[in-house]
Design a protein around this nucleic acid. Structure first.
Lengths: 276, 276
DNA sequence: GGCCTACTTTGCTGCAGCGCAAACAAAAGG
DNA sequence: CCTTTTGTTTGCGCTGCAGCAAAGTAGGCC
């Protein structure tokens, strides 16, 4: 397909240095705050009752949930930093509380492919649930993030002690497998414009925020990112977006995309577009 | 990428009619045979002791294994027939005992993508382990097959009663997720020739049989099949194979591919090929 | 044996979209 | 405020590969 010469800019991920996990570990107990650069991030509202509502913890008794959460460490990850990196020993698994994360696989040649985006409430780094001891991909904070981290060794312990927890994470793995397969099908059968359209629609579905203009993708995303999701180049993505903007399908700016007309974009994604 | 006009020949899978599951159901007890067209297929050697050696049943007590196997029905599937079809209710899950199966996803437009090949000993149709009630893809016998079939309702029962069974199937799902992700990366970053080379190498690794000429892919596979694995057209695959045959990398005939020089093919797959 | 069907080969044409290059614009940082 | 960095736009040429067409070939089947 393409042969993007290494990763245009964003060379070698200089910014994404490995996180010292010691830093910013706050015990989850009652009300607390994590200082977050200029703004303070109040975690008080992300208490047990809220966490309990997440799909991962569905069907788990409150006291069990307490036991699970009490073993976690909260951690903040500034935009651009790695939560974990491909091929490293998977010492921890994570729950994203706030922010957005992109999961990236790098080829030996240094090209990068964005496998998926993670939204708050989802698990990441569950390498052990896949029967691995190393992370199969890197997780980079697409925006400032807050995560809960557990030592990986606890994963099997939790899964054994709380069958629902195991079942729920496996359900996650299952649906990710299906997503991956649809992606393969898209990559095999669709033209670039359809793939990009599909990618935008997925992003909007996953984290679209209603604005006067339309549905805004709620985290910074560059042309390069979209290119790495769809197996094309940032140039082509740029051209497509400007063309679509002229047609009133989307509206976009620096690291920002708003889908104005999802219906027509869907038509385009499915190749049932009248013009071109 | 491509835009293969529907599925060239092999129109609408006329041959892959749905199987009457009633037919050829033999209870797994002791030594038995399934008549198989011209040749008789002796299943006597596929008895418990052999089945017990499969990864799926690792760590399961012999008496539990008996209980599991006693609830299965053996079934033969002639080449070209579907074991199950996409979108149908997943009433059964299967264990492939003999033969080879291709897992195919069809797009609404009628294009088909081969998601993976299944070898003997692997599970298929485990929709319930993915949290689905319908099959996400079709499974077509690439050669005459023998499968064990269980009603899907038993899956959760087994997983609960025999933790190892559950864990092992989840491990399967996990590794399939990883395979799918590598496939996505390949589709995103590689040229057609690299993708085809990688596909051949995977097939050979999975079911290569040593022959005087080299490693033969041990089931009938057409140019069209390879094209559907790699997101290209049978024409391009044909051209590549003849070119490679001239260079002594492979040897191929009708529905038959032998990899003569896996090392040089790997170089090509990784784009470290000297010429072109 | 001979027909028919399914698979394969090969040439030619066209174009989607990549590679390269260069200018621009908006943040960030000092 | 100015400078630097990082993301975006746009033009142009080139090519990998799909699309089309048509002929050749191997098996299956009667």
């Amino acid at each position: 397909m393409l042969q993007r010469k290494q990763k245009d800019k964003r060379d070698n991920q200089i910014k994404t240095t490995r996180l010292p996990l010691v830093e910013a570990l706050l015990h989850c107990a009652g009300i607390y705050r994590i200082p977050f650069g200029h703004k303070e991030k109040a975690l008080s509202r992300l208490d047990r009752s809220l966490i309990a509502g997440l799909p991962v913890f569905q069907g788990i008794a409150p006291e069990d949930l307490d036991r699970i959460i009490s073993r976690a460490h909260a951690q903040r990850v500034p935009k651009g930093q790695a939560i974990f990196e491909q091929e490293y020993e998977a010492h921890f698994f994570f729950l994203l509380l706030d922010g957005h994360v992109r999961v990236v696989k790098s080829t030996p040649e240094g090209q990068e492919v964005i496998v998926r985006y993670i939204s708050p409430g989802e698990l990441i780094g569950i390498a052990h649930a896949l029967g691995r001891t190393t992370y199969p991909a890197s997780a980079i904070a697409a925006a400032d993030c807050v995560v809960l981290a557990w030592p990986s060794s606890l994963w099997s312990e939790f899964a054994a002690a709380f069958p629902n927890f195991g079942a729920n994470t496996y359900k996650t793995v299952g649906s990710r497998l299906q997503d991956a397969h649809t992606l393969v099908v898209e990559m095999s059968t669709e033209q670039v414009d359809q793939r990009v359209a599909h990618a935008l629609l997925k992003l909007v579905k996953q984290s679209g925020k209603q604005t006067p203009d339309g549905l805004l993708i709620d985290f910074p995303i560059s042309r390069q990112d979209i290119a790495e999701m769809t197996g094309t180049t940032l140039h082509t993505v740029s051209r497509l977006l400007t063309a679509w903007e002229e047609r009133g399908l989307v509206k976009s700016g620096r690291q920002k995309v708003t889908v104005v007309d999802p219906d027509r974009l869907l038509l385009l994604a499915e190749g049932r577009d009248q013009r071109n």
